[in-house]
Structure formats: structure tokens, C-alpha cells
Amino acid sequence: MERIPVLKMGPFLLVTIQVDLYDRLALTLENDLINMVSQTGARGVLIDISAVSIVDSFMGRILGNIASMSRIMDAETVVVGMQPAVAITLVELGLTLQGVHTALNVEKGMELLNTKLGDNLELDDEEEEDQDDRND
């Protein structure tokens, strides 16, 4: 049976979806991912959908489910690389993926997860981090 590979990268899991998902494949992915989160104790899940040209409400629900389920197991989910046409369509459809984090690409998604985990690996050169919120 066809499966989408899930890669483990340090504390994170990475899935790159490169085929048009039909329902069974999407449900298998949901299953596999959640099992992997529980087995590896991963702290974050990155789902790269840059090669996906269509996201309908079913697929949107799967993404939302993965995020909610992971959160219960203390892992954050970031959907990365959504195509502009897909984003415009989803908004028109009425689906804004509440509760799912988004990032432009895998690299930025990773950064986002690191910040969320309070892991300051990326902040080496940002010593003068002096948040100035006067303007808020």
C-alpha cells in the first residue's frame, strides 16, 4: 500500500507531500504521523505542502486534525510552503486552518518551531535582543 514517508530530524518530524492526496492516503498519513509522534516523542511536526496544488475541505480537516492531535501530545504542527493559489482558494472556501501554524518554507518552519520550544539555537547572533514594544 502506498504511504507517504515521515522523516525524523532531531526533535522534529518532517513530511513532504508530493502527490495529490486521495482520502485513504490522507487518513493513513494522519495515522502514521500521530503514531510517530507518540513513538519518538517528537516536539514538532513540519508538513511541507509546496507541491500540493489542491487543498479541499477534507484535506484541510486532516491538517487540522493532525495539529490538534499532536498538540495533545505536546507537539506543535507547522504547515509550510502553501502555494498562493491554494491560500486564496482556502480563504474563499472559508477554511483558515485555525490552530495550525504556517511558514513560508521548511527552514522558516524549523525556526518557528525552535522559537516555540524556547530553544535559542537560532539566536546566536542576536545578542542585542531588546524587544521594544513602545509602538504597539
Binding site: 496544488s53 489542491i54 487543498v55 479541499d56 477534507f58 493559489a85 486564496i88 482558494t89 472556501l93
Partner: peptide, 17 residues
Amino acid sequence: SLVNQTKLITAASELVR
């Protein structure tokens, strides 16, 4: 255009589902 195609296919996908 790509955006209009995506909208049409997504709608078609919902309806066929």
C-alpha cells in the same frame, strides 16, 4: 489562470466528494 483553475478544481473536489 492558475488561481481560477485552483478555485474550480477545489469546488469540483468538494462536490464530487
